[in-house]
Write a protein that binds this DNA or RNA. Structure first.
Length: 440
RNA sequence: GGAGAGGUGGCUGAGUGGUUGAAAGCACCGCACUCGAAAUGCGGCAUAGGUGCAAGCCUAUCGGGGGUUCGAAUCCCCCCCUCUCCGCCA
């Protein structure tokens, strides 16, 4: 969320940044709302001031036993009070109107973010690893999984409809192994603290990381008992990413500079309605309503943020390197960035079955955009005034898609799948999942 | 779900209708004392918003929202959260 004062003082910069994102200018409209807000506040405060003063006089008059004067003042006060509700109402309304407008404005790209209109304009930053060479035509992950009898979309549809899957036996274990492996890597070698956070959260948490108010249709909601309008109990949202839970760990708090950067990681289920994705990636596990993901979140000072961003990207890349997966890193161009981000790197893993790179991680630095929404601050060493922290988040990495990548990259001509070296300790030493192995 | 106790500044904790934005202590900052430190003494120390070149002034804020009153941290109502006991439960 932007600070209206900053927009007031940097309106040209603000609109120029929006133009880079392909958005129309907005500063003039916002400043008009701000003028309305400020004059409404001023008018209301003048009235308040008079009332406070009169009230004190009444107190003094009563103390002095001057009842006549007190009564006269009370009469005057009654008149003042009559006009108060309208003034207060106008003030409140003007504040809400501006706040609502500000809450729906996306973050602006940093200067070094490449200009572009959409995902086709994302420049490749680097390409890493060797794509595997096959002596046969590589299959897509769902063919592999279904042929093994371990990946079942039909049964999942009976339980839950489209965009769900049932994984079984060694395949289920392989997915668990991936999650464990990533978590161990980030906690053991990358200095992240393991967190097991709530995955049901309130509105406020989602407002903090800016999934609300604008992206409600992408979320799933949960209600105790029946729907609220039918007399149900408390309502929650299911997190679309652990970024929500992990980032909001510091909401409404004042940290000490020496604590920073804070690094959190979590392995959680994520839930997405995929409202705008009808017809896309309908086959297989690429785009599911429910998937698990290892998330990385850093809370940093403004000075640390960009260094931390590169570091986080490196942590995510290490996952793919250890798994022996080929990938490339792209920098999202100005037109393709997410709502909260100032700069985003995507890691795209090579999928031989699809014959293309697919996103498996996204690492973003958000500046103080989310910190303002959460009111998360820190106290600089030796300083008195607080500053907003900077927040970063990244996938480290998406577990469901990592499973897809392992299946497609480690598939064998006989229909089996080799287990990557790094995962074997988590698979009880198993070196390959073989056809006909069953679910045990 | 039932019964009860609470939510006050960075922290602890006073405060039941009138200069209370809020005592006191701790922490922190400055000064004095000291060769230096500790101890001690004196002073300072909330946040947000509005206004002003500035010093400053004004408004709001004692979990959140309403209400009573000339006036609310203090009284009333609703909600949220924490804790204790009971019930239920993985």
């Amino acid at each position: 969320m932007f600070d209206i004062k900053w927009i007031r003082e940097n309106s040209a910069l603000f609109d120029a940044g929006r133009e880079r994102r392909g958005l129309p200018p907005l500063a003039a409209d916002l400043l008009a709302l701000d003028d309305t807000r400020r004059s409404a506040i001023a008018a209301s405060q003048v009235a308040q001031e008079r009332r406070n003063a009169a009230s004190k006089e009444i107190g003094a008059a009563m103390k002095a036993k001057d009842n006549e004067r007190a009564e006269a003042l009370k009469a005057e006060m009654a008149e003042l009070k009559a006009s108060a509700p309208a003034l207060e109402e106008a003030e409140k309304r003007a504040i809400v109107v501006l706040d609502r407008a500000l809450a729906e404005i996306p973050n602006l790209p940093l200067d070094d973010v490449p200009f572009g209109r959409d995902e086709n304009d994302n420049p490749e930053l680097r390409v890493v690893g060797e794509k595997p060479v096959f002596s046969f035509t590589p299959k897509e992950h769902f063919e592999i999984g279904e042929n093994l009898g371990l990946m079942d979309f039909e049964t999942a549809a009976k339980l839950s409809g489209a965009r769900f899957v049932v994984n079984k036996g060694p395949l289920a274990r392989l997915e668990r192994a991936l999650g464990q492996f990533m978590l161990d890597l980030h906690t053991g070698e990358h200095d992240y603290a393991e967190i097991n956070p709530p995955i049901l959260v309130r509105d406020d948490a989602l407002f903090g990381t800016a999934q609300l108010p604008k992206f409600e249709e992408d979320l799933f909601a949960a209600h105790a008992g029946r729907l609220p309008q039918e007399g149900g109990g408390d309502s929650y949202w299911l997190i679309p990413t652990a970024e929500v839970s992990l980032t909001n760990l510091v909401r409404e708090s004042i940290l000490e500079e020496r604590q920073l950067p804070l690094r959190f990681t979590a392995l959680t289920p994520c839930f997405r309605a995929e409202a705008g994705s009808a017809g896309r990636d309908t086959r297989g596990m690429i785009r599911q309503h429910q998937f698990s993901k290892v998330e990385l979140v850093s809370i940093a000072t403004p000075e640390q943020a960009l260094i931390e961003h590169e570091r986080m990207l490196g942590c995510a890349e290490t996952v793919l390197k250890r798994l022996g997966l080929a990938y490339r890193v792209v920098t999202l161009c100005t037109g393709d960035m997410g709502f909260s981000s100032q700069k985003t790197y995507d890691i795209e893993v090579w999928l031989p079955g699809q014959g293309r790179y697919r996103e498996i991680s996204s690492c973003s630095v958000c500046g103080d955009f989310q910190a303002r929404r959460m009111n998360a601050r820190y106290r600089p060493e030796g300083g008195k005034a607080t500053r907003f922290v900077h927040t970063l988040n990244g996938s480290g990495v998406a577990v469901g898609r990592a499973l897809v990548a392992v299946l497609e990259n480690y598939q064998r001509e006989d229909g089996g799948v080799n287990v990557p070296e790094a995962l074997r300790p988590y698979m009880g030493g198993l070196t390959a999942i073989m056809p006909g192995s069953g679910t045990r």
